[in-house]
Design a protein around this nucleic acid. Sequence first.
DNA 1: TAGTTTATATGATATTTGTCATTCATTTTT
DNA 2: AAAAATGAATGACAAATATCATATAAACTA
Lengths: 238, 238
Amino acid sequence: MSTNHSLNTPCELCASRKFSLFSDLSETQVCTISDHKNLISHRKGQILYYEGTKPLGIFCINSGVVKVYKTASNGKEQILHLAQKGDFLGYSALLGEENYTNSAMIIEDAKICFIPKESFLSTLFNNTPFFKRITKALSHEIGVMEEKLTDATQKSIRERLAYVLIQLANCYGIEGGESQRIDLILSREEIAGMVGTATESVIRLLSEFKKDNLIDLDGKRIIVKDKRGLARLSDFYA
Amino acid sequence: MSTNHSLNTPCELCASRKFSLFSDLSETQVCTISDHKNLISHRKGQILYYEGTKPLGIFCINSGVVKVYKTASNGKEQILHLAQKGDFLGYSALLGEENYTNSAMIIEDAKICFIPKESFLSTLFNNTPFFKRITKALSHEIGVMEEKLTDATQKSIRERLAYVLIQLANCYGIEGGESQRIDLILSREEIAGMVGTATESVIRLLSEFKKDNLIDLDGKRIIVKDKRGLARLSDFYA
DNA sequence: TAGTTTATATGATATTTGTCATTCATTTTT
DNA sequence: AAAAATGAATGACAAATATCATATAAACTA
């Protein structure tokens, strides 16, 4: 990993802070953390951490996109979520006092700060509102996972893919009149990892969605043309 | 719900406390909680809470078994986990400051204490070790859910059913020489809800497992005869 | 730029799983 | 105890999805 102190924006000036769990830290506390952090890894393909290894701190994403995934026994990747600006990574392993339960890889060039365990935990334990905020995030995450599990067992691949496309459009969509261009390069294999299916199934369904005028394909890029139609198909009334 | 103060064992004398998250509360704190709790619902079939409703406190299971589940849009239940003696229910909704993300139903006659929100939270926020302990439990839960999600998308129904049977044998198994009798009445539909599949699929696979001498069926009861065989089949090297 | 590798796309096919229908067994109700 | 309702078991079938094979396109490398 490349560490670069000179590019190290202090947390107190960090633009992504207001989106993050740090948003209700006092100036002093932010500075304490800032003094100990390091700006690290930024290239696509770089691994932040591997499942099974010991967490030494947390990662705070300043820009870029990180995929958080588990490798199943059949070798396929299940993508648990995509993390972006303002998101924290690795605090659940730290607070659970266990090794990482998943791996994290940068999929879009990123600026990421690493905050060592000690300064993160001491700030946490000395600041009840911050601790509450983190706990709230953990609790919320459980609800999200319960939902994902239920969808995985009770919905079809078509429904799940449609839903993934809606979410991608919501997070990474660039407005263009009627349609939204998903501004994130994902391989078909990665999309399959998000849905939890085989790559070929994703390719086939994307072709079908295109034929049905729900989306357009431009190389790896996907343009969502009819979000409402996808929503109907996904059986999520969201 | 039936509330019965006379049967209200104080927490400080509760046998299930040592298994629970309360195990490192001080005597005084346990007593504070104890003074405010109520022993409630005990019959099979009773609902502790419904998804979407507002949590008013947490449940602490003294005895019995509770299924925690979500109802999917197709009407089927996805069982998230079975809770038993010493387990807490509903604290993630409380700490996440949101409505229940799942429902809970007693499936084996139970003694359950209800601790109101206020006394639980005030104890929590005034006792960092306890707060840490809860946070650790939440964090661990996330890892468990990640594993379940990955299994749901990457493993076959046969593998998942085999694994569920192993887990049930581990939790509720009564030793009988080579075999373990699962001492918990679950309908085929509920087992299907645990696995995340159709009831008929469970019935069919159980018949298959029986034919292959992995299990025996005695009415609703299941006897695990060859746990190692199930483990091989489940593709979990656990 | 040509050659090589990798990703995408599509077809053919097998397998898995779900759905519907029916029978049989077990509980529950009257 | 008889009748009714519910749950379990099984067969027949349909649908969804995975796998394997191959073709094409795109990306990378020498």
